[in-house]
Amino acid sequence: GSSGLPPGWQSYLSPQGRRYYVNTTTNETTWERPSSS
């Protein structure tokens, strides 16, 4: 899909309704949208 996220990243919603991002390669999580640069 065209999520616009860098490879390996997925976006999720927290129980509070906030969006966060997870790097499935490194298990890093961040509130900031990852850049593909």
Results as ranks from 00 to 15, higher is better:
Gly1Met: 11
Gly1Asp: 14
Gly1Asn: 13
Gly1Pro: 12
Gly1Cys: 15
Gly1Val: 13
Gly1Phe: 07
Gly1Ala: 13
Gly1Trp: 04
Ser2Asp: 14
Ser2Gln: 12
Ser2Arg: 10
Ser2Met: 12
Ser2Leu: 11
Ser2His: 12
Ser2Val: 14
Ser2Phe: 08
Ser2Tyr: 05
Ser2Gly: 13
Ser2Ile: 13
Ser3Glu: 15
Ser3Gln: 14
Ser3His: 14
Ser3Ile: 13
Ser3Tyr: 13
Ser3Leu: 15
Ser3Arg: 12
Ser3Asn: 14
Ser3Trp: 14
Ser3Pro: 11
Ser3Gly: 13
Ser3Met: 14
Ser3Thr: 12
Gly4Ala: 13
Gly4Arg: 10
Gly4Asp: 14
Gly4Leu: 10
Gly4Val: 09
Gly4Phe: 09
Gly4Cys: 15
Gly4Tyr: 09
Gly4Ser: 10
Gly4Met: 10
Leu5Cys: 05
Leu5Phe: 03
Leu5Trp: 04
Leu5Ile: 05
Leu5Val: 04
Leu5Pro: 04
Leu5His: 03
Leu5Ala: 04
Leu5Gly: 02
Leu5Asp: 08
Leu5Met: 05
Pro6Arg: 03
Pro6Tyr: 04
Pro6Asp: 04
Pro6Met: 04
Pro6Ser: 03
Pro6Ile: 04
Pro6Gln: 04
Pro6His: 03
Pro7Thr: 07
Pro7His: 09
Pro7Trp: 07
Pro7Asp: 10
Pro7Ser: 08
Pro7Val: 08
Pro7Lys: 07
Pro7Ile: 07
Pro7Ala: 10
Pro7Gly: 05
Pro7Tyr: 07
Gly8Glu: 07
Gly8Met: 05
Gly8Ser: 04
Gly8Ile: 03
Gly8His: 07
Gly8Val: 03
Gly8Thr: 04
Gly8Phe: 07
Gly8Gln: 05
Trp9Ser: 00
Trp9Phe: 03
Trp9Ala: 00
Trp9Gln: 00
Trp9Met: 00
Trp9Ile: 01
Trp9Pro: 00
Trp9Asp: 01
Trp9Lys: 00
Trp9Gly: 00
Gln10His: 12
Gln10Cys: 15
Gln10Thr: 14
Gln10Leu: 15
Gln10Lys: 15
Gln10Gly: 05
Gln10Met: 14
Gln10Ile: 15
Gln10Ser: 09
Gln10Glu: 15
Gln10Arg: 14
Ser11Gln: 11
Ser11Leu: 06
Ser11Asp: 07
Ser11His: 04
Ser11Ala: 11
Ser11Arg: 04
Ser11Asn: 02
Ser11Gly: 08
Tyr12Gly: 09
Tyr12Phe: 15
Tyr12Asp: 05
Tyr12Pro: 01
Tyr12Gln: 08
Tyr12Trp: 06
Tyr12Thr: 05
Tyr12Arg: 12
Tyr12Lys: 12
Leu13Arg: 05
Leu13Glu: 07
Leu13Ser: 04
Leu13Asn: 05
Leu13Trp: 09
Leu13Val: 12
Leu13Ala: 03
Ser14Arg: 00
Ser14Asp: 15
Ser14Ala: 04
Ser14Phe: 00
Ser14Tyr: 02
Ser14His: 04
Ser14Gly: 09
Ser14Thr: 15
Pro15Leu: 06
Pro15Asp: 09
Pro15Glu: 10
Pro15Lys: 09
Gln16Asn: 15
Gln16Lys: 09
Gln16Gly: 12
Gln16Ala: 12
Gln16Tyr: 06
Gln16Leu: 10
Gln16Val: 08
Gln16Pro: 02
Gln16Asp: 15
Gln16His: 10
Gln16Met: 09
Gly17Glu: 02
Gly17Met: 03
Gly17His: 02
Gly17Asp: 02
Gly17Val: 00
Gly17Ile: 00
Gly17Phe: 04
Gly17Arg: 01
Gly17Ala: 02
Gly17Leu: 04
Gly17Pro: 00
Arg18Ile: 15
Arg18Ala: 08
Arg18Trp: 05
Arg18Gly: 07
Arg18Met: 09
Arg18Asp: 13
Arg19Asn: 06
Arg19Ile: 15
Arg19Gln: 09
Arg19Tyr: 11
Arg19Glu: 13
Arg19Ser: 05
Arg19Ala: 08
Arg19Asp: 05
Arg19Gly: 01
Tyr20Gln: 02
Tyr20Leu: 06
Tyr20Glu: 01
Tyr20Thr: 02
Tyr20Trp: 06
Tyr21Trp: 12
Tyr21Val: 00
Tyr21Ile: 00
Tyr21Phe: 07
Tyr21Asp: 00
Tyr21Ser: 00
Tyr21Lys: 00
Tyr21Arg: 00
Tyr21Asn: 00
Tyr21Thr: 00
Tyr21His: 00
Tyr21Gly: 00
Val22His: 09
Val22Thr: 06
Val22Met: 07
Val22Asn: 01
Val22Phe: 09
Val22Ile: 11
Val22Lys: 07
Val22Asp: 01
Val22Gly: 01
Asn23Trp: 03
Asn23Ala: 01
Asn23Ile: 00
Asn23Met: 01
Asn23Asp: 06
Asn23Thr: 00
Asn23Glu: 03
Asn23Gln: 03
Asn23Arg: 01
Asn23Leu: 02
Asn23His: 06
Thr24Ile: 12
Thr24Ser: 09
Thr24Asn: 08
Thr24Trp: 08
Thr24Gly: 06
Thr24Gln: 10
Thr24His: 09
Thr24Phe: 08
Thr24Val: 11
Thr24Leu: 12
Thr24Glu: 10
Thr25Arg: 09
Thr25Asn: 10
Thr25Ile: 15
Thr25Glu: 13
Thr25His: 12
Thr25Phe: 15
Thr26Gly: 01
Thr26Tyr: 02
Thr26Leu: 05
Thr26Phe: 02
Thr26Arg: 02
Thr26Val: 02
Thr26Glu: 02
Thr26His: 01
Thr26Met: 03
Asn27Leu: 12
Asn27Glu: 06
Asn27Met: 13
Asn27Phe: 10
Asn27His: 13
Asn27Trp: 10
Asn27Ser: 09
Asn27Gln: 11
Asn27Tyr: 08
Glu28Gln: 06
Glu28Leu: 05
Glu28Cys: 10
Glu28His: 04
Glu28Asn: 04
Glu28Trp: 03
Glu28Ser: 02
Glu28Thr: 05
Glu28Tyr: 05
Glu28Gly: 02
Thr29Leu: 14
Thr29Arg: 14
Thr29Phe: 15
Thr29Met: 15
Thr29Ile: 15
Thr29Asn: 06
Thr29His: 14
Thr29Gln: 10
Thr29Ser: 10
Thr30Asp: 03
Thr30Leu: 09
Thr30Phe: 11
Thr30Ile: 09
Thr30Tyr: 08
Thr30Lys: 07
Thr30Gln: 13
Thr30Met: 09
Thr30Asn: 04
Trp31Val: 06
Trp31Met: 07
Trp31Pro: 04
Trp31Asp: 06
Trp31His: 07
Trp31Phe: 13
Trp31Gln: 06
Trp31Leu: 08
Trp31Ser: 06
Trp31Ile: 06
Glu32Trp: 09
Glu32Gly: 04
Glu32Phe: 11
Glu32Val: 11
Glu32Arg: 07
Glu32Pro: 02
Arg33Ser: 10
Arg33His: 14
Arg33Tyr: 14
Arg33Pro: 13
Arg33Asp: 09
Arg33Phe: 13
Arg33Val: 11
Arg33Cys: 15
Arg33Leu: 11
Pro34Ile: 02
Pro34Ala: 01
Pro34Gln: 01
Pro34Arg: 00
Pro34Leu: 02
Pro34Trp: 01
Pro34Phe: 01
Pro34Asn: 01
Pro34Ser: 01
Ser35Asp: 13
Ser35Asn: 13
Ser35Val: 14
Ser35Arg: 07
Ser35Thr: 15
Ser35Met: 13
Ser35Pro: 12
Ser35Leu: 12
Ser35Phe: 10
Ser35Glu: 14
Ser36Glu: 14
Ser36Ala: 14
Ser36His: 14
Ser36Tyr: 14
Ser36Val: 12
Ser36Pro: 10
Ser37His: 11
Ser37Ala: 13
Ser37Phe: 10
Ser37Leu: 12
Ser37Asp: 14
Ser37Met: 12
Ser37Trp: 10
Ser37Tyr: 08
Ser37Glu: 14
Ser37Gly: 12
Ser37Lys: 11
